[in-house]
Amino acid sequence: MIARISGILMHKQPAQVVVDVHGVAYEIEISFNSFCQLPAEGDTAVLHTHFVVREDAQLLFGFSQLEERSLFRILIKVNGVGPKLALAILSGMDAHAFCYCVQHQDSATLVKIPGVGKKTAERLVLELGDKLASWQTGDNGGGQSGVIKPTLSTVSAQSEAESALVALGYKPVQAAKAVTAAIRSAPHGSCEDLIRLSLKGMI
Results as ranks from 00 to 15, higher is better:
Met1Leu: 13
Ile8Trp: 02
Ala15Val: 13
Gln16Glu: 11
Val18Pro: 02
Val18Met: 12
Asp20Gly: 02
Asp20Ile: 06
Val21Ile: 10
Val21Trp: 00
His22Lys: 12
Val24His: 08
Val24Leu: 13
Tyr26Asp: 02
Ser31Asp: 13
Asn33Gly: 10
Ser34Trp: 00
Phe35Ser: 07
Pro39Lys: 13
Ala40Leu: 06
Gly42Thr: 11
Leu47Gly: 11
Phe51Glu: 14
Val52Trp: 00
Val53Met: 13
Arg54Glu: 08
Glu55His: 07
Ala57Trp: 03
Glu68Cys: 03
Ile74Asp: 04
Ile74Lys: 14
Leu75Gln: 06
Gly80Ser: 00
Gly80Pro: 01
Val81Ala: 01
Gly82Leu: 03
Pro83Asn: 07
Leu87Ile: 14
Leu87Gln: 10
Ala88Leu: 05
Met93Ala: 14
Gln105Tyr: 05
Asp106Ser: 14
Ser107Tyr: 02
Pro114Cys: 06
Val116Met: 02
Lys118Gly: 02
Thr120Gly: 00
Arg123Asp: 01
Leu126Val: 09
Gly129Cys: 03
Gly138Pro: 04
Gly141Asp: 09
Gly142Arg: 14
Gln144Lys: 12
Ser145Arg: 11
Ile148His: 13
Lys149Gln: 12
Thr151Trp: 04
Leu152Ser: 12
Ser153Pro: 00
Ser153Met: 00
Val155Gln: 12
Val155Cys: 01
Ala161Glu: 02
Ala161Thr: 01
Ala164Met: 01
Ala164Asn: 03
Leu165Arg: 05
Leu168Arg: 04
Gly169Pro: 01
Gln174Met: 03
Lys177Ile: 11
Ala178Trp: 04
Val179Lys: 02
Ile183Arg: 05
Pro187Cys: 06
Gly189Cys: 05
Cys191Asp: 00
Glu192Cys: 11
Asp193Ile: 04
Gly201Arg: 03
Met202Leu: 15
